[in-house]
Simulated assay, not measured.
Amino acid sequence: MRFSVFTASTPEWTPAEAARNLAGQGWDGIEWRITDQQETQTPGFWAGNRATWPLTGLEDHLDEIERLTRESGLEYSGLGGYARCDDHDGVERMLAATARLGARQVRVTMPRTDAGEYRALFAAARRDLEWVASRAAEHGVKALVELHHETITPSASSAFRLVDGLDPQHVGVIHDLGNLVIEGREETLASLQLLGPYLAHVHVKNAAWVAGEPEEDGTVPWRAEWAPLRAGAGDVDGYFRALHAFGYDGWVTCEDFSTELPLEERTRGNLEYLRAVEARTRPAAAA
């Protein structure tokens, strides 16, 4: 397996700093975040993220993205796009950029479940994804559907239903440990087997359910929060054992949205931890 970082999780670093720091720590690759975002004085994961490239005018930045990535010695694990499947212009631009950079694969986001009636949303997304698949094939790249809470594809089962019958050379699924803590978790090995050739990429982060203050009647509200890899509810060792059992040997992209540790310490420690977990969960015959 090879390990990369999604720059949504490195908001304090500029693109040049992200490439230099991650390469210096020994990461194999980088997954650039590409989206138009709200600018803020204080950098954050979702707004004011300094390691994000804008979708508006993206074509003018491709040479710089390519230069920073190449000079750092990092590879692309893919591109972290935010263009939704029904935004055909945005998707086309992301697919073209993926091909131009040689990044091979790019995330295409799915509708949120609160955007309408589920069956209608799903049917429309399937039609859009058929178009996406055809365009991805034209560009020679792969479009990725992420397992993500609060969207129409929170689970492997829902994602498989969406992509089933499309060409797995040009449409794939991102399995995501942390998102599945919040919604959509199924037994990991079974979910990987269900996806089969559609399993194209893996994201690793962690989350935990936290109890709030009891209400007047004693009801305890719970909320999900991002957590360090070692401290969340997701079983990282079990996750890697399942990946090994399935035979997955592709990219594992870390996107740690916890804030207990400073960014540089967090990314460095995550790489050490992920490599240790990957090694100790590897079947003996493959060690």
Score class of each variant (00 low, 15 high):
Gln169His: 04
Gly247Lys: 00
Ser4Ala: 15
Ser134Gln: 14
Glu138Gly: 01
Thr98His: 11
Ala245Glu: 14
Thr40Ser: 13
Val252Gln: 10
Ser134Ile: 01
Thr109Cys: 05
Arg107Val: 07
Leu189Phe: 05
Glu265Ser: 13
Ala97Leu: 12
Thr56Ser: 14
Gly269Gln: 03
Pro197Ala: 06
Glu215Val: 04
Leu180Ile: 03
Gly238Gln: 04
Arg127Trp: 04
Asp237Asn: 10
Trp222Cys: 08
Lys142Ile: 03
Cys85Asp: 10
Leu271Pro: 09
Arg70Ile: 06
Val145Gly: 06
Leu229His: 02
Asp176Glu: 03
Ala286Lys: 11
Asp167Lys: 03
Gly247Tyr: 01
Glu215Tyr: 00
Arg127Thr: 14
Val106Glu: 03
Pro262Tyr: 01
Gly48Gln: 06
Gln193Thr: 14
Ile152Ser: 08
Glu117His: 14
Phe246Trp: 05
Ala231Thr: 11
Pro43Arg: 04
Leu129His: 07
Arg50Gln: 12
Leu62Met: 05
Asp114His: 02
Ser191Val: 01
His148Glu: 13
Asp28His: 15
Asp63Ser: 01
Arg126Ser: 05
Thr10Arg: 04
Leu129Ile: 09
Arg70Lys: 14
Arg93Asn: 00
Leu58Glu: 12
His88Leu: 13
Trp53Tyr: 15
His170Gly: 00
Gly165Arg: 07
Gly140Cys: 06
Ala16Arg: 13
Pro228Trp: 12
Val204Arg: 01
Ala23Ile: 00
Arg20Ser: 15
Phe246Pro: 00
Phe3Met: 09
Gly48Thr: 06
Ala99Gln: 05
Gly73Thr: 09
Gly269His: 02
Leu271Ala: 06
Arg84Ala: 07
Phe246Asn: 09
Ala18Ser: 15
Glu59Pro: 09
Arg33Val: 09
Val91Cys: 09
Val202Met: 03
Asp36Phe: 12
Glu272Thr: 13
Arg223Ile: 11
Ala47Met: 09
Leu144Glu: 10
Asp235Cys: 06
Gln38Ala: 15
Ala51Met: 00
Leu274Phe: 08
Thr42Asp: 00
Phe6Trp: 01
Ser134Trp: 10
Leu144Ala: 06
Thr98Gln: 06
Val204Leu: 13
Ala133Gly: 14
Leu68Met: 01
Ser4Ile: 09
Glu75Trp: 07
Trp27Asn: 01
Thr267Glu: 13
Thr40Pro: 08
Trp32Ala: 09
Asn21Ser: 12
Glu216Gln: 14
Gln105Asp: 02
Trp13Tyr: 08
Asp114Glu: 07
Ala211Gln: 11
Glu215Phe: 02
Pro54Thr: 08
